[in-house]
Amino acid sequence: MSTAETLTAQGYIQHHLTNLTLGVHPEHGLSFAHNAQGAAEMGFWAINVDTMFFSILLGWLFVRFFRGVAEKASVGIPGAAQNFAEWIVEFIDENVRGSFTGKNPLVAPLALTIFVWVFMMNLMDLIPVDLLPWLFGQSMAIFGADPHHVFLRVVPTTDPNTTFALALVVFGMVLYYSFKMKGVGGFLGELSLQPFGVWGMPANLILEGISLLSKPVSLALRLFGNMYAGEMIFILIALMFGGGWALGLTAGALQFVWAVFHILIITLQAFIFMVLTVVYLDMAHQTHH
């Protein structure tokens, strides 16, 4: 890597794990952060432009494709695009029917959005790790920026902001439907009266509270952890390319093997996120406790 030559391995990894953050720095004012520390100093009121850009771009592609199909959806013989979209929709519909027992028109579209959007964001991991950041750095250099301080993370799901955002929205829905379906008393009763009955109320609250709070946290951290680790391995493999032709060939083989294996991981993680969301919402809808 041309930029990696002048960097240490640690610097290279750091560079790849830093978001393109726009925010108000206490010293530099409104600017892009020059490093991870600078991004941290901006505090909460900063935005990861790369994460937002790629996630919205992918989401836009997703809704555009499916909207295009939905607009032209014909009852007759479907075209290739419609066939593909219907295949996914039926797959989601089957899964939702299998694990969601209540009646809510929101759940299936929610599951479709999560599955396809998360899958597409994960899929960005299969693009060679240096390609887009390098292109972006070079093109920013035209405008006078130092490519070493131009960051770009192309996989939005390796940014905990994304995974926690998804998990928090799901958690908000779980709370909303818990209160709506079970009633305030029903939901609070569910939290405090089991598994040990009325006299074990404090223990119940602790247990059920942890179990409730662990839902969004586990959702977000599972996806984030898997994608972060996957990206890290790609970065480590990419480091080997700088170590002569023998190491480079090994790295090429390793990268191929890991990419093939990663196809499984990204699909699985998108699927797990979707299924758990549906299951949590199903639990929120159950009133017979």
């Binding site: 991004a39 809704v63 579209p109």
Partner: peptide, 25 residues
């Protein structure tokens, strides 16, 4: 680092879900 991206992603997610529910599904 948690920052405004979290809110932004929540909004985008909500918009995509709403759009999918209304115009796609």
């Amino acid at each position: 680092n948690f920052n405004l991206t979290l809110i932004g992603q929540m909004i985008s997610f909500g918009v995509f879900v709403w759009f999918t529910m209304t115009y796609v599904w």
